[in-house]
Design a binder for these strands. Structure first.
Lengths: 146, 146
DNA sequence: TTTTTTTGTTTGGCATTCAAACAATTTGGT
DNA sequence: ACCAAATTGTTTGAATGCCAAACAAAAAAA
């Protein structure tokens, strides 16, 4: 195993075991300091305009329906999300962001954009292609184990 | 924002919001199916031979002392970890892996190695250098926000 | 020797998660 | 139209995961 190889391994471990913690600590310093990282991910999955159903969001987040219910309960109480009973099918709950939820969504997207900018800083188009391919390899690995 | 850029952003989000979940689901299928991902990370931080103190491990994992105490309690009960009271300084607790803990440690390292292999699959030395630099950029971003 | 600091544990409380039981509604089969 | 089955989401009960604050023991500093 080469030196580069070991460094990449260490780097990956460091990144994936710290990135969510760092996102959360940034959140704590912002105006949205009463949100946890999981709640923020839920807001992200609900997203701006689509009014997905609870099932769809639960599947996206790999959560059981019961877990999602409690997450949504909290987000409703905190004023980020609203439940909309579907009129076609009265079993279905559609989810939407409140104005406050949409503001948070955009703030988080901006943070991501800064992150990606720094990740790709200093590379030309060809190099960006290499990086993209490596990430796809990793996605492929993850898909195998899903 | 270019198409590549957007794809890299999506890929990064997918990776960092799923990789730990996938590690955990692999764990569930193995002989170590009574470990959670956090417990596994603790085993990893304790590591093979050093007998770190509880404080050192807590710092590494960004956990409060109280949280670490309860994690270690569980790992001791499950037979992966042992507490060793220091003789020099009787306040200090040093942590070590049992034989079972060391077996788990190696199994997890092997999983990581497969992951990194697939991540770097098909690239030459120069390209690996580009990938390493991108990861370092990301580490730099994380350090700014720590 | 007394005070302060360090190290780890305990306590209390909330968040996160799942599995299983449940209720409401819709769909499918007859 | 009616009954059985499937779907959708909620509730309940239990374990883990986390922190802050109070605490106890030991070591270091004064």
């Amino acid at each position: 195993m080469s030196a580069d190889y070991q460094q990449i391994s260490d780097s990956l471990v460091k990144i994936y075991s710290n990135i969510l913690r760092i996102e959360e600590s940034e959140l704590r310093k912002s105006q949205f300091n009463n949100l946890t990282i999981q709640e923020m991910h839920a807001i992200n999955a609900i997203s701006m305009y689509e009014h997905k159903t609870a099932s769809q969001v639960a599947k996206e987040l790999h959560l059981t329906p019961g877990t999602l219910t409690s997450t949504i309960d909290r987000l409703v109480k905190k004023g980020y999300v609203e439940r909309i009973r579907s009129k076609d099918d009265r079993r279905v709950v559609r989810l939407g962001l409140t104005k406050k939820g949409r503001v948070e969504y955009r703030a988080h997207a901006a943070f991501h954009e800064k992150l990606v900018k720094q990740f790709l800083q200093g590379f030309n188009g060809e190099e960006v292609g290499v990086i993209l391919q490596a990430l796809r390899n990793l996605e492929g690995f993850m898909d195998e184990y899903s």
